[in-house]
């Protein structure tokens, strides 16, 4: 082995071998891990959620009686000083509807599209820059939003419908929480909003007694959330602690008195003719209990939410505005 061509060959071969050895060794050392992997995979976590309440608006509640949904909503908000009190020009608003089931609007198992349309309109007129509508329904999301009429209402109002895609969720731990610990939460719409409004129907719920504004936040949970039914009142209270909204709106124009929360028959409904708007979700739920023929004391989550400092179960103490919406 001599001569320049052989030397060149030697160098080339040595270079290739050296590169291969460095590559294999470097890759091995670079990915080396002395310890076992963690017990759980890492996930993106969500920081603590801000309060979405508008400054200086706490403890307000209005009840509108009679009229169409749009009239009732407008009258109740007017009694609270108008939507401008809660949504300022240029703000991004998230409306959390209840779209849990793929059922038609007539059975009132989901937020009624009429009241969603009216709310979108009011937000728009208050100067909202963008309006998001979302929920993580129980059944196929697209079917739920389409069949309930909510998708059409959002579209015609120019609001954006955000479906619960897997990547819209983040793991979240409620500070001091016992149930919402490292749990997937529908985070994307929450992170994209300055204001959050809960818009829920008034429904019977066999396990918790009632599905109202605090229970409406259940639709922000992902994962196998049904295990929380073991402590339904506990989860409702933690949800109310997690989400401090700008407003909650309860549509009690028709209330589902039995067979809830799915309903399915017009005979499950009763005309109760109320729209409740409040900045205090505990007070709103306490006020709506009456529409279902219940007292707040029969709904343990109300007392527990008050004890946790989330609101006032004695809604009459807030000096509620009671207005008539009919006849207009």
């Amino acid at each position: 082995m001599s001569g320049p061509s052989n030397r060149r060959e030697f160098l080339i071969r040595a270079g290739k071998t050296g590169l291969a050895l460095t590559g294999v060794g470097g890759l091995g050392l670079g990915l080396f891990s002395a310890g076992p992997p963690p017990a759980q995979p890492d996930g993106q976590t969500l920081p603590e959620l801000p309060s979405y309440a508008a400054a200086g608006t706490q403890g307000r509640l209005a009840v509108a009686r009679g009229g169409e949904r749009a009239q009732g909503l407008e009258a109740a908000l007017k009694a609270l000083g108008g939507m401008e009190q809660f949504v300022k020009s240029g703000e991004r608003v998230l409306i959390k509807v209840n779209a849990a089931f793929a059922s038609p609007p007539a059975v009132c198992a989901t937020t009624h599209p009429q009241i969603l349309a009216a709310l979108i309109d009011l937000c728009r007129r208050a100067g909202a820059k963008s309006i998001l509508v979302t929920d993580n329904p129980i059944q196929d999301p697209l079917s739920c939003f389409e069949l309930s009429g909510l998708a059409a209402a959002a579209r015609s109002g120019g609001a954006e419908l955000l479906l619960p895609r897997p990547e819209a969720f983040r793991r979240y731990t409620l500070p001091g929480g016992r149930l919402i610990v490292d749990w997937p939460v529908l985070a994307e719409p929450l992170l994209r909003a300055d204001r959050v409004i809960g818009l829920a129907p008034v429904k019977d719920h066999h396990r918790s007694g009632a599905s109202l504004s605090m229970k409406n936040w259940y639709g922000l949970l992902g994962g196998r959330r049904n295990i929380f039914h073991q402590d339904i009142h506990g989860i409702i209270v933690e949800l109310a602690a997690m989400l401090r909204p700008t407003l909650v709106i309860l549509d009690g124009v028709q209330s589902m008195l039995r067979n809830g929360p799915t309903g399915g028959s017009l005979s499950d409904l009763k005309d109760t003719g109320r729209i409740i708007v409040s900045t205090d979700q505990v007070a709103a739920d306490a006020c709506a209990a009456d529409l279902l023929g219940k007292t707040p004391a029969q709904l343990p989550f109300i007392a527990r939410a008050q004890a946790t400092g989330l609101g006032n179960a004695d809604w009459r103490a807030l000096g509620p505005q009671e207005v008539e919406a009919s006849g207009s």
Partner: peptide, 15 residues
């Protein structure tokens, strides 16, 4: 342990 998620989701009326 309390649960009845099945009852809650039964879509038939009456359930």
């Amino acid at each position: 342990r309390p649960c009845i998620v099945c009852q809650e989701n039964c879509p038939v009326s009456p359930k």
